[in-house]
Design a protein around this nucleic acid. Structure first.
Lengths: 343, 343
DNA sequence: CAGGAAAGTCGAAGCGCTTCGACCTAGGCG
DNA sequence: CGCCTAGGTCGAAGCGCTTCGACTTTCCTG
């Protein structure tokens, strides 16, 4: 392939001049610039990334550690990944994809060998083992998620506590007096994934504040899981009129179950979903939902990375305020049923 | 950071010796090897990837071009991505993630600047514009998918024609005389994505061979889409007793629709799904399905890449035979209804 | 017991780029 | 009119690694 020397020769200049027209770090006369650019085009020259990384001390590559299990919340993760890649490209960076099950090893490897300029880490647990590792890397890192002790590392996330609160508040405003939470799969809680517990905390806050009855359970992302979860809630909260669903995969089964058991949404049961907008709109009922702004968060993470790379400012955590979109799955609570209606 | 020179000095050997213990390309005495490895561990030495790429002419990085739209088939894509990354790691390679909407530019960029040793490209269209580009790159490429003219590029994919045939054959064996196909979203066909048309071809073959009546329609991946699609099929094929669903996202809504309209699966309608196994198992009914072996295909693609990198053999296309798993969504056709039953 | 092969190690030459300091030329200022 | 400065360009020194050829030593083999 053509090298910078070939270009220099073709344009009748030195290699450093070519380098400067490429980087713009020194003034170049318009005439020279034109000749160099012509030669570059003619030879189809592309700077060698390795050589660049070696001499220039940066790679224009970001690492993205994503939870690549075929677990749940696949669509959200996809949104994150997509938006991170797209945003990175808009800053002329590429993305190296790491799986979370490489644990800290992957982070240390790509950072230690200078493959990447910075790291973005998703699916943060409350007490994430990767945080101390990230702190001692030379490259800056941004977390998508919120650990208990970020300890100097930048975070971006949806304010899940506020999301939990908002969902309940909305239901309370509609006069509901008891609300069930269909949560993420047990595995999510077991991992200590922080968004689940934060959401739960906000949920509980609101429940307390509004003086509601409540029940909450994790839920496997299958039809059977949704059924089991709903049954438990019904048992603990007979006649429950409001549901909060923080589990995308459970949404579709849940609606099916409700319908086939003759409970209408929203007339008999109001449902607030926590999910990306497109999920909320693809269901049989347009769901009132608190949006999980995956695209926004991914882009935000990249922006933070870039400003850290520019050395612009230190760590900071940015929690996006949740927005609740009113659609067709919520209604005022039905008139108070005679005590002891449904078993 | 520690460099190879630091390690060499600490171990009292030359840098080339360190390099040889790392690469194993020349014999090293056990004693020397031990000292070098001790120094490496002690200094926490990691070879600089850029320097390596420059001197060694390879990066140990693969490019993966994935269709990162929040489109449909998100779970399948996720499977591919996951398995490619995992398989790549097992060969000591990393994965650079490209979005398909960068088109050929991304491929040319990462290949031209020597960021990657090889490329894996997903979501191949019948007449994919990226193929001529890939052909003229210095790096080998593997397609996940099957274009009309691979022209010397390796392909791996499920044999979707056989999958379509298999699904219909299974239904025919159960005595069904008419079968509806709920296909991928229109956008998939419009793009000319080859798996959709190949599936359709196999479907049509079998329909012809078994002398069945059939109707097939694309289907938007929403509740409304599924409803509309089913209605069209019902209109064209009154009393249809068998459905093939080549659209994961439509599966759950479809089952809901069938149930709420009082059609039992499988007693009244048999359904064969084409989807990954976990999707087939997460639905209210354990679906009889033709598996889309995402994990297998991703791993296979990486294996092909590795053997190309080793220079082992030339292009070859590998189509995985479909396997149909009998579960609970298919039954024998109901007794022939009196003509003109359902409108 | 000489000759040669194999084992083990080293030095040095790049790989293709960035960047620093130096140099040369004009132009503006006192 | 001489000097300083800014603009524009060049040469060379790395960046950290791999690899080739060469050298030394050891061990067979005939």
């Amino acid at each position: 392939m053509a090298t910078i020397a070939d270009v220099a020769q073709a344009a009748g200049v030195s290699t450093s001049t070519v380098s400067y027209v490429l980087s713009g770090r020194r003034p170049i006369s318009p005439a020279t610039r034109a000749r160099v650019e012509a030669s570059i085009a003619e030879l189809g020259y592309r700077p060698h990334a390795g050589a660049r990384a070696l001499a220039g001390r940066h790679t224009n590559v970001l690492a993205l550690a994503a939870p690549l299990r075929s677990d749940i919340n696949v669509p959200v993760i996809m949104q994150f990944v997509t938006s991170v890649v797209t945003a990175a490209r808009s800053y002329d960076h590429d993305v190296l994809l790491l799986t979370n099950d490489e644990g800290t090893a992957g982070l240390e490897r790509v950072a230690g060998s200078a493959m990447v300029d910075a790291l973005i880490v998703m699916d943060i647990e409350s007490d994430d083992a990767r945080i101390p590792v990230l702190r001692r890397l030379r490259q800056p890192a941004v977390l998508i998620g919120l650990p208990n002790r970020p300890g100097g590392i930048s975070c971006v996330d949806l304010d899940f506590a506020a999301a939990g609160y908002t969902a309940v508040a909305h239901l309370a405003e509609h006069g509901h007096r008891s609300v069930g939470l269909i949560g993420p799969p047990p595995a999510v809680y077991q991992r200590g994934t922080s968004y689940a517990t934060r959401f739960l905390a906000g949920f509980a806050d609101a429940v307390g504040e509004f003086g509601l009855a409540s029940a909450s359970h994790p839920c496997e992302p299958t039809f059977d899981g949704a059924l089991a979860c709903l049954n438990r809630i019904d048992a603990e909260l007979p006649g429950v009129s409001a549901l909060v669903v923080h589990n995308e995969a459970a949404l579709s089964p849940l609606l099916g179950i409700l319908r086939s058991s003759g409970r209408r949404v929203p007339e008999d049961v109001s449902v607030v979903a926590i999910c990306p907008e497109d999920v909320a709109l693809g269901l049989p009922i347009r769901m009132t939902s608190v949006d999980i702004p995956g695209h926004q968060l991914g882009a935000l993470a990249v922006e933070r990375v870039m400003s850290l790379l520019r050395g612009e400012r230190g760590a900071e955590t940015r929690l996006l305020a949740p927005t609740l979109a009113e659609r067709d799955s919520c209604a005022d609570a039905p008139a108070e049923p005679a005590p002891g209606t449904r078993p």
